[in-house]
Structures are given as structure tokens and as C-alpha cells.
Amino acid sequence: MNEMLFISMLSGAILSGTPLLYATLSELIGERAGIINLGLEGVMLIGAVVGFVTTVQFGNPVPGLIAAALAGALFNMIFAFIVISRRANQLASGLALMFCGVGLSALIGAPFIGRRIEGLSQVRIPLASDLPFWGRAFFQYDILVLLAIPTAVAVWWLLFKTRWGLSVRAVGENPTAAYAAGRNPHLVQYQALLISGFLGGVAGAHLSLALAHTWAEWMTAGRGFFSVALVIFAKWHPLRAIAGALLFGGAISLQLQMQARGVPVSSFLLDMLPYGLSLAVLILWSRARRSAVPGSLGRVFQGTE
């Protein structure tokens, strides 16, 4: 029974954390290039609805997933144009993008309400999925869960081990200096936001295709917004984002488990757990490593103003 409890907790954490991880990585790439996008919520909604609608049309979630990623990338280009080419305020533009995503996704999704899809199903990995305990805990998930951590590693590799990543970080630190060094800051930022939108679309698709198997208006329920916080939590590092997403997903899972077990605490107080825990860990973390004190967000922000 304890084993079952552990697996249940863990799978809840992984499932809650996966869309958050994709969303956090999405936001992180943009912020590394110096652009904060509060409109990720909108990008995710577009991904969720386009993924669902395409899956309905094709009867298969694979085209849905691809379409969601592309739609997210395309939609994010609206934001890119406004903040890069038109140099508009990023914070306000992000919220405008969110409004747009909320409205547009609702319009696209309305005719498909109540349609049934075969969502992303569990992937069976030979051997691994059949392991008695570890198999159930770690290897019986849909493809997006299994690819989540590899994606984080890939983003890390992209940002820290490639020339392109160096450009992104250089532009994010100081676009003027990057320009002087022969880089094209605008081009790099457009590329970063394209990839960011791609991942944001995937994050949305995981909600509609793998978790809920349905489309509902504003089904992101603040996850995109929250990912902005997770990026700060992860200190702009893709691998730490894994820890952040898991911690937050774990807190959600824990509070659901506690409720279902009848722990005698108000569900409203239990619901605070993920937020309180994130804040507590953040504070402890920053005290342990004072040198890494945030404040970079202001720099990120001013760098492009």
C-alpha cells in the first residue's frame, strides 16, 4: 500500500509538472534572450486548442501535437513583432497577447466542444515499462512526459553548448555589446521567441491531449502565468527548471492526496501549499547562495527597453 501511495504521489507530481516544465522552458528561452513574455498563457491556450481541433480532424494526436507546436510558435510571432520590431513594453504586450490567446482559442474551440478524441496514450517502453516498481513509477506515461526532461537537457545544451546559445545569452545580457560583436540581436530574439512559442504550444497540447483529453476555455488556469515565476525560481537555468516544475507539481499532487485521505485541514489552506512551498524554497535557496540574488529580471527588462 505504501508503494502504491508513493507511485500515486509521484505520478501526480510528474503529470502536474510536465506542462509546467515545457512552459517554463518556453519562457526561459525568451528571457535568456532578454524578453519576458507574460502572454505565455495565451500561447499555451492556442497550443491546447489547435492540438485538440487538429486531433479531432485527423483522429490521431500526432498531427495535433505538431500543429499545436507550430501554432504556438506562429502565435508567439505576434508578440515578437510587437516587442522586437516595434519595441513595445514587454510586460504590457504580454498581457495583450494573453487576451488575444484567450479570445482566439475560445473562438477556434467553440464548434468542437464535446467532441471525443483519442488523446496521447501511454508509451510502452520494452523492458523499462514492465519493471515491477520503477516501471510503474517512471515509465508508464505519454510521450510528452517521457520527453520532458530530455527537452530540458536539450534546451540547456542549446543555450550553453552551442554558438547560437551563446548569441542568445549575449543578446539577453547586453544587446548593444552583442551587436557590436557582430551579432544581430533582433534576429536572435526572433529565433528565441519562435522556439519559445513552439514549446509553449507543446505545453498547451499536453493539457488538452494528454491530461484532460478535452478542450475547455481557459483550461490553462494560470499555468502559463505561473511559469514566469518558475523561471525566476529556476534562476534562468533549464536544469533547475526540472526541479522547480517537479516541486510545484509535487505540491499539487500532495495536496490532492491529503484531501482524498481526509486530512483535517481546510482545502483552501491545502491549496496554498504549492505557492507557499515555492516561496519558502526560493527564500532558502537564495539565502544559501547570496551571490545569485535575482534582480536579473530588471536587467532583462531594461536591457531591451
Binding site: S8, S16, A221, I252
Partner: peptide, 12 residues
């Protein structure tokens, strides 16, 4: 309104 969370709670 939070269909993904409902699904996770259902599984729990």
C-alpha cells in the same frame, strides 16, 4: 474550471 487538475485528482 481546471480540467487538467480534475483529471489528476481523479487519478489520485
Amino acid at each position: 474550471l481546471d480540467a487538467p487538475k480534475e483529471a489528476i485528482a481523479a487519478n489520485a
